[in-house]
Nucleic acid binder design. Structure first.
Lengths: 140, 140
DNA sequence: TTGCGTGCAAAGGTTTTGCATGGCA
DNA sequence: TGCCATGCAAAACCTTTGCACGCAA
């Protein structure tokens, strides 16, 4: 029998990474930025460790991973558990990077359409709509 | 003065790549798949050449480049100016990993709603709907 | 002939993996 | 003590660039 353990030891590195992600208050960072941040504080954490923690946190739903086109590397962002993200979609601006939470009844229409017409059960927690937000569209 | 020449020589490789993209009838391929395709036909084309042609074709608007999250490499798709210029949904099954691309008028509704109600211009090339496909839902 | 096209090789960058060591419980 | 976590080094990948040679016009 394969038992999947929680296996979440409390380590200095794990705690520091989570704390740092929280401290960003919604801002997004790349793995490299995280590594450099800890180098600056002389509290070095190996990049392999950073990758592995981010992967774990993303799987737990504590952070979200983005792959923005302009950047070559992925961006990660902490998700505040205080706000319940279950009932809405996320809009990610590809230009300024801001994440917009969309609470709207239209959500049900999308969900219903995909399920009834395409037999597809959408996962709202993971799905992100990419595009251009109001502010950035105005500048263009 | 910098003069940008058209500089479009007609070559075997360029023609074969364009023909192949057209033959896919809307399907996606990666650079690797293209290279392997020509290896199979014993009409080998270097991957550098493939990259450069795809870049050129994308700049000309003849093909579309997708950078999908989970995939490591970019996907390219021929754009049929007659029928296929509208774009489509991308549904990614989180269980079996299959990518479903489907044309549906509902796309316009989503686009319109996000723009009119939320001032958000969605980028359908980048947006992927995550969830569970029909087959995998049946197994669960 | 001119100069772009081609493709090998190598570089550049991100992410993953192997493995010996370190550290939590 | 038993595992998991860590992090160095190396591998695995994708994409771009340098350069000599090929080929279209």
């Amino acid at each position: 029998m394969v038992r999947k353990r929680p296996a979440n030891y409390h380590t200095r590195q794990g705690q520091r990474i989570l704390d740092y992600m929280k401290s960003l208050e919604g801002g997004h960072v790349t793995v490299n930025q995280i590594v450099r941040h800890f180098e600056d504080t002389e509290d070095v954490i190996g990049q392999t460790t950073v990758y592995r923690h981010l992967e774990k946190l993303a799987a737990q739903g504590k952070i979200r991973k983005y792959v923005l086109h302009e950047d070559k590397s992925a961006c990660y962002q902490y998700i505040d558990n205080g706000t319940n993200c279950r009932g809405h979609f996320h809009l990610k601006c590809e230009i300024c990077g801001s994440l917009i939470h969309m609470d709207c009844d239209f959500l049900d229409e999308i969900e219903g359409h995909l399920l009834s017409k395409h037999n597809f059960q959408i996962n709202m927690l993971k799905t992100v709509f990419y595009g251009t937000c109001k502010k950035c569209a105005a500048v263009l």
